[in-house]
Design a protein around this nucleic acid. Structure first.
Length: 184
DNA sequence: TATACGATCACCT
DNA sequence: GGTGATCGTATAC
């Protein structure tokens, strides 16, 4: 599933405008045994979306300031999800203006003028840019008109996909070495 | 109730 | 290479 999502479009409607961003990087988090997966803590208020039906958005806050967006990939009771780690903009009627406000500290500008390529290439960054937050947690990405995923025309060959270890999960024992990160 | 820390990022040396 | 920002969640008391 993490490989099947590569190349597809992550779509977001903001104020009546639609942004499409091609998914270029994903990671898989697999069930209650995978110590890197939040579901390894069991069914809690936080993880209940992952234990629910597939196709729903599991969105959580990390480090007190960023959100991460995942898609639940397996049937109810089987808590697996794919984290969307990176995207590339395809069509955009909104953030090309470069007027996405952010402020990490008072020193920084209220408007982010950096190119989009550097604003969508990370799980926290793409959520900030696409205004994905906890309010969208649980939405069905097959049905939602706010946040959804579309197939792309292009065929992704397995030779185009690089694999690697997942990022930021050094605490997860042997699970940290699983090659469950995938990049186009 | 209190505390430790994280599926990150930007900035610093 | 390292660190601070900042808060929800899990875990310990």
């Amino acid at each position: 599933m993490p490989r099947q999502l590569l190349g597809k479009y992550l779509c977001r409607r903001i104020s009546g405008r639609t942004i499409r961003a091609q998914i270029t990087e994903t990671e898989a988090y697999c069930g209650t045994k995978d110590l890197a997966c939040h579901a390894s803590k069991g069914l809690t208020p936080r993880t209940k979306i992952m234990f629910g039906p597939p196709g729903h958005a599991y969105i959580y806050m990390i480090y007190g300031m960023y959100y991460c967006f995942n898609v639940v990939t397996r049937e109810e009771g089987c808590p697996e999800a794919v984290l969307i780690r990176g995207t590339k903009v395809v069509s955009d009627q909104w953030s090309m203006t470069g007027k996405n406000k952010y402020s990490l500290s008072s020193k920084k500008p209220a408007i982010d003028y950096r190119p989009l390529s550097t604003r969508l290439n990370g799980p926290g960054k793409l959520c900030r840019e696409l205004k994905i937050d906890k309010k969208l947690s649980g939405v069905d990405v097959c049905k939602s008109r706010e946040l959804w995923i579309e197939d792309s025309q292009e065929e992704i060959k397995s030779s185009q996909i690089k694999k690697g270890k997942r990022i930021g999960v050094d605490y997860a024992g042997k699970w940290k070495n699983k090659l469950w990160r995938f990049l186009l």
